[in-house]
Nucleic acid binder design. Structure first.
Length: 220
DNA sequence: CGAAGGATTTTCT
DNA sequence: GAAAATCCTTCGT
């Protein structure tokens, strides 16, 4: 089986990519979710190309953790853009969100899937991680992504716009590897199932499978 | 293949 | 005490 379609990251040297600053996160939550597909995430030294996100926008989104108001857990969703909201669920999964902007209302973009990269001693660049091929070790699915980058709830609230933050996003190189961003209803939500706030790269194999066979390209 | 059920613990009611 | 923005295994076609 071939490795998943993806960029050869010889150019990566993340220095060549623009690091996302506060203004890049201060977008409407849904716009941020869309723009993060194809972006690179550096999480304490682990590198990931984001392939799938979901938006949780506003206090009247019934699927959002913020739906029933502010609690200690979801507090970062009510704060300024460019911070992490990390939560623990189902007794075993740690899921990572980024806070965007929503007119003073709570905001969260759930990182649902990505393609892992590892250093390549031969080229000196980064190459797709063989772990991507094994569902268990991949970063496909929010729980698996959280595990792959080693996220913990202690990371919740982290300001990722500080110059020396251990977590940072970089905009992908549009001229080299445009994602084809498609949308679908969100996965695993109990309310608001008609809203298409899930975004994914239709060119990537490394996206989650929609339980209901709803819009979701699969290549191979 | 797909459907069903268990795992496991934090958070909130 | 119940639910949870999930994942994995098992069991049935």
């Amino acid at each position: 089986m071939p490795l998943p379609e993806g960029p050869s990251l010889d150019f990566l040297g993340l220095d060549h990519l623009a690091r996302m600053q506060r203004d890049a996160f201060a977008l409407d939550t849904v716009e941020l979710a869309r723009s993060l597909v194809g972006a690179y995430l550096s999480y304490r030294g682990r590198l990931l190309r984001i392939t799938e996100t979901e938006a949780y926008r506003g206090g009247d989104d019934p699927a959002s953790h913020a739906y029933r108001g502010r609690t200690r857990r979801n507090a970062p969703m009510f704060g300024p853009p460019g911070h992490l909201y990390v939560y623990f669920t189902y007794g075993m999964h740690t899921c990572v969100n980024v806070v965007g902007a929503c007119e003073g209302e709570p905001s969260g973009v759930l990182l649902r899937a990505g393609e892992l990269f590892v250093p390549d001693p031969l080229s000196g660049g980064m190459v797709s991680d063989p772990a991507n091929r094994v569902p268990r070790t991949s970063a496909v699915g929010p729980g698996r992504l959280g595990r792959a980058v080693g996220a913990t709830v202690a990371d919740s609230g982290m300001d990722i716009c500080q110059p020396n933050a251990e977590v940072a996003f970089f905009l992908g190189d549009p001229s080299a590897h445009d994602p084809v961003v498609s949308s679908s209803p969100r996965i695993g939500v109990s309310g608001g199932a008609e809203i298409r706030w899930r975004f994914y790269d239709a060119k990537s194999r490394l996206v989650s499978k929609h339980p209901r066979g709803l819009p979701n390209h699969t290549f191979g």
